[in-house]
Simulated assay, not measured.
Amino acid sequence: MKAKLIALLTLVTPLVLASSVNAANPQHVKKLLATGECAKCDLSKANLSGAHLIGADLRDANLQGANLTKANLEGADLTGANLAGANMTSTLATNVDFKKANLNKVNFTRATIHDSNVYGASMNDLNITNAEISNTGIGIGGEDAEVPDWK
């Protein structure tokens, strides 16, 4: 009996752990990559490294803990998206709408962020080491700075 239980646990444990580590909905990942549209999708902890997400509709999507290393998000709409803890190392984020997004603890190391809207976004504990940022309200300090909304 003990041998059967141990064998069962040996087989089931990796499946349980794998599903909890990778919480993204596989259908949502496929939909995003095929159509570029995935508003309100669960993409938490998804591996989107190197993905071409130009103009993607990711409004209110859950990208918490997602890997977006070297992804191209040019012109993407991430309004209200949850990107908390996402890895955006070396990501291209030009003309991205991050309005009211959760950017807490996002790793923007070596990212290129130009002309992007961060109006109302939460940006606590960002890592912007060696990031190239222009015409975007991301910086060090400036708690009283005004971040304009896109018109």
Rank of each mutant, 00 (worst) to 15 (best):
residue 1 M to H: 11
residue 1 M to Q: 08
residue 1 M to D: 09
residue 1 M to C: 07
residue 3 A to H: 10
residue 8 L to G: 06
residue 9 L to A: 09
residue 10 T to G: 06
residue 11 L to N: 03
residue 11 L to S: 04
residue 12 V to I: 12
residue 15 L to Q: 04
residue 17 L to V: 12
residue 18 A to H: 04
residue 20 S to V: 14
residue 22 N to M: 07
residue 28 H to W: 06
residue 28 H to T: 07
residue 31 K to E: 12
residue 31 K to P: 04
residue 32 L to I: 06
residue 32 L to G: 03
residue 33 L to N: 12
residue 33 L to K: 13
residue 34 A to H: 02
residue 36 G to C: 08
residue 36 G to D: 10
residue 38 C to D: 10
residue 38 C to S: 13
residue 39 A to V: 04
residue 40 K to Q: 14
residue 41 C to N: 11
residue 43 L to Y: 09
residue 44 S to H: 03
residue 44 S to Y: 01
residue 44 S to M: 04
residue 45 K to T: 13
residue 46 A to V: 00
residue 46 A to D: 03
residue 47 N to D: 06
residue 47 N to V: 04
residue 48 L to D: 10
residue 49 S to M: 03
residue 52 H to M: 14
residue 53 L to K: 02
residue 54 I to F: 05
residue 54 I to D: 15
residue 55 G to Y: 01
residue 56 A to L: 08
residue 56 A to K: 08
residue 56 A to N: 07
residue 58 L to G: 07
residue 59 R to T: 15
residue 59 R to G: 13
residue 59 R to L: 08
residue 60 D to P: 01
residue 61 A to G: 03
residue 66 A to L: 03
residue 69 T to C: 05
residue 69 T to G: 01
residue 74 E to Q: 15
residue 75 G to Y: 01
residue 78 L to Q: 05
residue 80 G to S: 06
residue 81 A to F: 07
residue 82 N to S: 00
residue 84 A to S: 03
residue 85 G to V: 13
residue 86 A to K: 06
residue 87 N to E: 13
residue 88 M to T: 05
residue 89 T to H: 11
residue 90 S to T: 00
residue 90 S to C: 02
residue 91 T to G: 02
residue 92 L to K: 13
residue 94 T to Y: 11
residue 95 N to E: 08
residue 96 V to Y: 02
residue 97 D to K: 04
residue 97 D to F: 01
residue 97 D to P: 03
residue 98 F to S: 01
residue 100 K to A: 09
residue 101 A to K: 02
residue 102 N to M: 05
residue 103 L to N: 00
residue 103 L to W: 01
residue 104 N to S: 04
residue 105 K to R: 15
residue 105 K to C: 12
residue 105 K to H: 15
residue 107 N to G: 05
residue 108 F to K: 02
residue 110 R to H: 14
residue 110 R to N: 15
residue 113 I to Q: 01
residue 113 I to V: 12
residue 114 H to W: 14
residue 118 V to F: 06
residue 121 A to T: 02
residue 122 S to N: 14
residue 125 D to M: 12
residue 125 D to P: 12
residue 126 L to M: 00
residue 128 I to Q: 07
residue 128 I to L: 07
residue 129 T to H: 13
residue 130 N to L: 14
residue 131 A to D: 01
residue 132 E to C: 11
residue 134 S to T: 15
residue 136 T to I: 04
residue 138 I to Q: 12
residue 141 G to D: 05
residue 141 G to N: 02
residue 141 G to Y: 03
residue 145 A to N: 12
residue 147 V to F: 10
residue 151 K to R: 13
